[in-house]
Write a protein that binds this DNA or RNA. Structure first.
Lengths: 244, 244
DNA sequence: CTCGTAATGCGACAGGAATCGCATTACGAT
DNA sequence: ATCGTAATGCGATTCCTGTCGCATTACGAG
């Protein structure tokens, strides 16, 4: 979709003008978008309201961002830069607890929570927003994976452990409640999730498959009622039947 | 908002008429909503399109369901009835694997997937949809929790284990990818999630707090060794922070 | 400082979504 | 079979979102 730079010939936008005004407009719009999405929620997010608040004509917003989708994506991209505090306690479980605790704190804080909550919810709606979300979480994962990598370096986790996956396992239950089921989130859940992830990581569940072409694909054996315990701790059961 | 029964006077809806036509209209509308949301996605979901497809006037839809939100909630509520196949292999890990495998299969199936995917995404947007979503997942959790309860009965899990929480732990990573980060989902992730949940459940991480006979393994090393970095607002202990 | 033009401001217009009052249908009880 | 009324059909109307053409501003090069 997005036409990007041609490595051969730098496309050279006719006369790029990243001028001061453009930058100012962008900053104002991002701030206005965040404020609006926080107040009104994503349902009440209107291009015109953002334009009015930012002191910019709505046509400009439509031209540059295409609509609400682009505004949200832009705001999300801007938010992706700010790094979270990364714990380093020397213990994986503790680090993961800090991370999940941080997620819990931010999203449940009546002051800070609504903004990222509304932002993520809004981003899920459109394609551009979804792309921005993927980039956002990819950055988060990559950043937070360091706690797992340090654990590997300490010998706390087996070599080849997928740090991103450890982080995902720890935080998924929180986001699951926040953005899927809509269930309330409590500190206990945050701890449990971290502990469970640490446990699984120590057990080697997130270690990359060395080279085990063990092909027992779990296709459809849901009828047979007992094939209990197919070899414990195999961990590498499935193949990558990656479908979009 | 909805004025409900007055305890004194039996409310007696003037003359309830759950007649044949009303039911037919409802069924048609639900079917049309599912078809529309599958084809057009949520963004392209229009009351008029649903009305046209269902052969019902749009004013009727606005009156009975209030808008797109209500349509989605209705469709979701209808979908909540159909039970998923519940495995019973005699082994918790296997059961959980079947469940996550089922989730994976349904949502990645190019035929079946789009409908529930679009439905859940759509439901996240409005309040009524969110309420329907909570009910939907509550039903799912309650149903699937049986695999954990059977594991408790078998002595495979400690008494007092929260079955819903086990199910959440197993499925959260899948929904996290599907509906939060937007990352692709593969069979391996499904297995890992199930295995990790089973591991954590066996370790007693999901046992209810009231009577915790002994949870040493879960909290023995909670004393943080050396937290450099942030000023530890939390205290790694975490146990003292009672669940809300 | 002067000039070319990208970027924005501005207002009008189109297009669809949501609402309202009234006529018509058909459910359900007598 | 008949009747009262809930439920639906129907069209007009209002409101708002998104788009377009043109005038104006101000960035950046000379």
């Amino acid at each position: 979709m997005t036409e990007v730079t041609n490595p051969e010939q730098p496309p050279r936008t006719p006369t790029p003008r990243p001028g001061g005004r453009t930058a100012r407009v962008r900053a104002d719009v991002v701030a206005a978008t965040l404020a609006e999405v926080t107040e009104k929620g994503y349902d009440g997010l209107t291009v015109e309201a953002v334009a009015t608040r930012a002191g910019v004509h709505k046509a400009t917003l439509y031209r540059r961002w295409g609509g609400v989708d682009g505004l949200v994506a832009e705001a999300l991209a801007s938010s992706a830069d700010q790094p979270w505090p990364l714990p380093d306690t020397g213990d994986l479980r503790q680090d993961l607890r800090r991370i999940t605790q941080e997620v819990f704190s931010v999203f449940t804080d009546p002051e800070l929570g609504p903004t990222p909550t509304a932002l993520i919810s809004a981003a899920q709606r459109s394609d551009v927003g979804a792309a921005a979300l993927r980039a956002f979480f990819a950055a988060r994962h990559r950043q937070a994976a360091e706690v797992a990598e340090r654990a590997v370096a300490r010998g706390e986790l087996p070599t080849g452990t997928d740090g991103d996956e450890v982080v995902r396992a720890a935080t998924a239950p929180l986001y699951y409640r926040l953005f899927v089921t809509g269930e309330p989130l409590d500190a206990r859940t945050a701890e449990r999730a971290a502990d469970a992830a640490a446990l699984a990581a120590r057990a080697g569940l997130f270690a990359s498959p060395p080279a085990e072409p063990d092909d027992r694909n779990a296709s459809d054996d849901r009828n047979d009622r007992n094939d209990r315990n197919d070899g414990d701790g195999d961990g590498g059961g499935g193949d990558e039947s990656s479908q979009a």
